[in-house]
């Protein structure tokens, strides 16, 4: 009995738009290979990343040690491969913790307007510190460990995520379908979880892909100045920190882990840009 035209053409599905986004696919390839290397570290690392070999300190790249050895004669390639595992793990944990706290804090601030001023002024105060300095300060107070590094970075980047989440919630909470849910008798919890969260998620996902990149970079900084996960554990930052005194004689110790960071971060940023374009071309993420 409905005489109406059946439907407006559905928009191109997200995955299709992403597949056609060339720099996204390039970023995905870069980051995907880093993830693959990290997952298969035990299988593909040619040497033990912790095994010292003092007869072959600061060895140049050759057939056995493709990327050379460091001051203790450890294989740089193997350390990078195993280090990628730790660095990605730290980045991922920072992303997860930041996502949860950022979404909850930002969601509450955006949804319950009475909390907004209080919560966001606290977040603003935290954001007033330059990000990496705050992370260094927190990590220095807590002491060097992998867990503390995650904690310091999560505390630093949660306000930035909360701000994005709040902005998204502010938009969604005014949508007529949220009012429709209230009219039906839905409570705050139900509205937040079934309507606001799914519809406000996209800017958050974009933000988190950038946070992932920044966390990996920041972990390297923390390790470099000695407040990250303690040596001899291999992380991108630790390897560079180990090599900095020998940068004249053995530049490969710093060069290759630096390249690994660059590839990882570039990949993640391209993924973030692609997601942003595919999800909403008008959206701009400001991250300082």
């Amino acid at each position: 009995m409905t005489a109406e035209a059946p439907a407006i053409a559905a928009p191109t599905p997200l995955w299709r738009r992403l597949l056609n986004h060339r720099s996204f696919m390039f970023g995905l390839t870069l980051f995907g290979s880093v993830v693959l290397v990290a997952l298969l570290a035990d299988l593909i690392a040619p040497h033990d990343p912790l095994k010292n070999n003092f007869r072959y300190r600061l060895g140049e790249p050759n057939d056995i040690h493709w990327l050379g050895t460091d001051r203790a004669g450890r294989d740089v390639l193997s350390r990078i491969i195993h280090g990628s595992q730790v660095s990605l793990r730290i980045g991922l944990m920072v992303v997860v913790v930041t996502a949860v706290f950022g979404a909850v804090i930002g969601g509450l601030a955006g949804y319950f307007r009475k909390l907004d001023n209080v919560i966001m002024r606290v977040m603003d105060a935290m954001m007033a510190f330059p990000g990496i300095l705050l992370a260094i300060a927190i990590a220095a107070v807590l002491g060097p460990s992998e867990f503390n590094a995650v904690l310091a970075l999560a505390i630093t980047y949660t306000p930035r995520t909360a701000r994005v989440a709040r902005a998204a919630v502010l938009v969604v909470r005014e949508m007529p379908y949220v009012e429709a849910a209230r009219a039906v008798g839905a409570g705050h919890m139900r509205i937040l979880l079934t309507h606001v969260l799914p519809n406000g998620l996209t800017p958050l996902i974009v933000q988190l892909s950038y946070i992932f990149a920044i966390a990996i970079l920041a972990e390297a900084v923390l390790s470099f100045i000695g407040v990250g996960p303690p040596p001899p554990l291999a992380t991108f930052g630790n390897i560079i920190a180990d090599g900095r005194d020998y940068i004249q004689e053995a530049p490969w110790i710093c060069l290759y882990p630096g390249l690994a960071i660059a590839i990882t971060v570039l990949g993640l940023n391209l993924i973030g840009d692609g997601l942003r374009d595919a999800l909403d071309p008008r959206m701009k993420v400001d991250l300082r």
């Binding site: 949508m175 007529p176 379908y177 009012e179 429709a180 849910a181 079934t194 799914p198 519809n199």
Partner: peptide, 10 residues
């Protein structure tokens, strides 16, 4: 509601 586009959760 008035708006048949906004009042249904997409």
């Amino acid at each position: 509601f008035q708006d048949p586009f906004g009042s249904l959760d997409p």
